[in-house]
Nucleic acid binder design. Structure first.
Ligand SMILES: [Mn+2]
Ligand SMILES: [Mn+2]
Ligand SMILES: [Zn+2]
Ligand SMILES: [Zn+2]
Lengths: 140, 140
DNA sequence: CAGCAGTTTAGAATTGATCTAGACTGATTC
DNA sequence: GAATCAGTCTAGATCAATTCTAAACTGCTG
């Protein structure tokens, strides 16, 4: 047992380099957790727990640093749906979200499934940076 | 100087009674600040400051209590746009928002100025509780 | 392999919000 | 109007998420 890691580091290493981020032990490990498991929406706390379970002792401060660096590098996108807690989205393409309030869980809505037929012009002197559509759902 | 207050208490008193909330000194004062100045988007901290400036010493705990009671009574609506801070909206009609990120300020978009032409069905077993559209803007 | 900018980290600090338990008060009853 | 009491208010403690700090560490480059 235990030869090479289940998942290769090469692709995420490449992503970090492209983003101009030094591929440190912690960043590599976190990038692998985040980017080799399909689209994800994680909180800092969740990622921290996962890292520790995967035997990667990372401090919470580094989790926050890394999440923000990845976000600023365009590898992640921050989504705010609840006061007091941020979610980080590995899907950086144009899309929107269901938010399951009881569970605190985000789910993608493909970008083409929400059409904003009409959108007002931004107040003069301002430009639109991003449009977020949050569809809040609950068990029925 | 100082006869009757600039703004009458009667109308807000009426609103409180209708909502089944006992019209206490603090609730009356806060309701007057909130509801007799047009549509507003305030944080707890902002409302607290305003109250103190208006010579109405209210504790921060009461500010939070009141904001939540008003929200649950349908007099206010909570809007989440930033991690770590909630805004309370005196406009409870169906509408959406510009959010000026640099300033931390919300601005109404009339409900009919955003049309969601297409909206996906909610995941089975769930129902839509509310749809929030946040248009994030910045100075250009 | 020396040097150093960039990175990580433990722990303290900050922030917005909530909780607690006791004091207060608006409404109701006599 | 005084007594009563559920509902309300408040100071202060507490909490959860996040950020900050300053010192140790580590990936590069020369
Ligand atoms: Mn950031
Ligand atoms: Mn609430
Ligand atoms: Zn997403
Ligand atoms: Zn509004």
């Amino acid at each position: 047992m235990s030869g090479m890691p289940q998942r290769p580091y090469a692709p995420v290493l490449e992503r970090l380099k492209e983003a101009g981020l030094r591929p440190t032990r912690q960043r590599l490990a976190l990038a692998r957790i985040l980017f080799t498991n399909g689209d994800r929406h994680v909180t800092a706390e969740q990622l921290h727990d996962e890292a520790l379970k995967a035997e990667i002792p990372v401090s919470l401060a580094t989790i926050y640093n890394t999440l923000h660096q990845f976000t600023h590098a365009g590898l992640l996108r921050e989504v705010v749906v609840e006061p007091g807690r941020s979610y980080f989205d590995t899907n950086t393409s144009d899309h929107h979200h269901f938010f399951h309030e009881q569970v605190g869980q985000l789910e993608d809505i493909p970008g083409d499934q929400v059409r904003l037929a009409e959108l007002p012009a931004p107040p003069s002197g301002t430009a639109i940076r991003r449009v977020d559509v949050i569809v809040r759902i609950r068990p029925s």
